[in-house]
Design a binder for these strands. Structure first.
Lengths: 193, 193, 193, 193
DNA sequence: AATGAATGAGAATTCATTCAT
DNA sequence: AATGAATGAATTCTCATTCAT
């Protein structure tokens, strides 16, 4: 691929994230093209279908998240790595409405399945370490963690939760994951508004 | 309003719930009309805009939920009423894809604000009672509860969580709401699959 | 169907015949709409697909032709009915470029198959009578007749044969269909230009 | 022109014949390029327009046919040369859908006029010889012959006539060209299926 | 009030053609 | 000369909404 082509591909992906974040997944491809400063044909040359474009964004996102799980797994404190990951992700999501929309919306077909698997694997590792460190209940599985994470990200975005609400909501969930002995006392929780 | 007009209004609302539940919020108004067995013009006579139709469904849903909070507030065990409400709602949501989609999708503008307020009030009451009974932490507010409820409903629908995953996810949240002394031991939680 | 709807349907069909006749089957649906004096949506309401529109025209044409076979079978001279039919059809075709284009072009699928069968039946009847009258060779079948007819119509249209050429070409074919005893002498044939 | 340029020109022409034969004249130029194994720009460097490419193919075809007329004129039996030519051409056409499509489709404008003239000349020669040998009626002209040939080729292709139907159809036409004394008896004609 | 036909502004996608590399 | 990326007009089809019957 030529240099200019790759550059355009990046610009389109970036534009798509912005546009879909602002207007939801039903924003038009035309809009993405305009934002990227390219002609509509260029978008379709790089992503032959709107679906393909959406999936590309998803893959990107999933890849970035998976990257963070690896980083935390090696560098972070095992006891808190999972909690950090969840908190970070929710915060980031707050800036990425459309992307997460897609995560749910569009048929998460074979194309992205692999990326999803990769992320699941990364989260599972964090979970295992936290469990080993006694920071997470024994009876909690990856599926619940990912389910909660997804749900909270969606909620944060769609309903446009503010920072405070986000923090308090996440706090409740993190506490729900902890074994009784590790639960936070009231004064350690984010204060209600 | 004539009797047959009122009857049509009901049929349209019912049809809309079915159609949007099955096909998501981008299902066409024509589809709703066909399901309701009326002509497209009739739908627009009752609901001047697709948005208006969506909002009407939301109001309906919110109204029903608010009704359940009242019922539980008077009849239920104060200690468990809130938890019952959350569990029930999530289960119901699993059968109502489109409706909850809308809850998020369409800007929850002025039109439904009042219904939302009513629900919030109902939930607040349940929360107060649960708190008074010592079943919920002191530092948990209505906003978090509603936020979590919404997020979980969305997640359950969009991602199509199965019954088990739903239960385990809800269990984590409920535990996060409990004061340390009331937390459930592992064996009281739904078992992982 | 309402009166105005039926009127529009007719106008669209008529416009489509004109447009496709002039510009070939790749003329745009938009063009048909403009010629018919309706909005594009109206065309698609009546014919949900471009294919459907093309097929509707074909059916119309086939139906008209079948009608002529019936008329000739009852009213015409058995000895010449088939020849009259062929000559007439070719002449008409000369005014109907696009229509015949379609006859070939677009997948003659199930939709039109029945109409084709009807025409085949009508032609078969004419052929049987001519054969019985000794005006057509015993070894000629319907398939050849229809094949020749189609081919000549196409040729006449596409290549824009003039009247004379059309007549002389048809004359050769008709002679090919005759038993030796009935062949026309030179002076009975259309003169070369 | 460079050697590799000439080689590319040939490859493009060959690819175009294949592609248009398989997918009809509306096949994309990209498709031709891909089949030829060159970039799209190269196609347009050699043929500045899709039309130009189509015309080039036509010229090629016409040239080959003209070649066959010459061969038959010198080598063949004068009495049957024309008939052989017609039969051969129809058979070949059956393998060349797209090409003949084009023959009709694209306005046979000035560009190819010369090639057409050449073919006409060749056919005329065959016709003259057959006439001289008494194998073709005196009142048949080149135009009719070419008209019939074109029509049958088109028909054979578009409608996808099978071998049998092709033969019987051609037989009728050839008989129509013969003077009465030379007509074939039933048993000499291809049998109906 | 109900009907359902008409409208027309998009939306996704294709493709001939141009042009920078 | 070749490459292949970019362009953008055109095309088919959808759907919310209006309006004549």
């Amino acid at each position: 691929m030529r240099a200019d082509a790759r550059r355009n591909r990046e610009r389109i992906l970036a534009a798509a994230e912005v546009v879909f974040t602002e207007k939801g997944p039903s924003a038009s491809t035309e809009d993405v093209a305009a934002t990227a400063g390219v002609a509509i044909g260029t978008v379709f040359r790089h992503f032959p279908t709107k679906q393909a474009l959406l999936q590309a964004i998803m893959k990107d996102l999933l890849h970035r998240l998976t990257g963070e799980t690896s980083r935390l797994a090696t560098e972070g404190d095992p006891a808190t790595a999972l909690f950090t990951f969840i908190s970070h992700t929710v915060e980031q999501a707050a800036q990425q409405r459309g992307v997460v929309d897609l995560l749910a919306e569009s048929g998460v077909d074979v194309q992205v399945a692999e990326s999803v698997r990769a992320l699941r694997h990364g989260v599972d590792e964090l979970l295992a370490r936290s469990r080993a460190a006694g920071a997470v209940r024994e009876d909690v599985g990856v599926d619940e963690v990912i389910a909660l994470l997804t749900a909270i990200c969606q909620g944060a975005l769609r309903a446009g939760w503010g920072r405070d609400l986000r923090h308090r909501t996440v706090a409740i969930i993190l506490d729900g994951l902890r074994p009784p002995a590790h639960r936070l006392a009231s004064e350690q929780r984010p204060a209600a508004q």
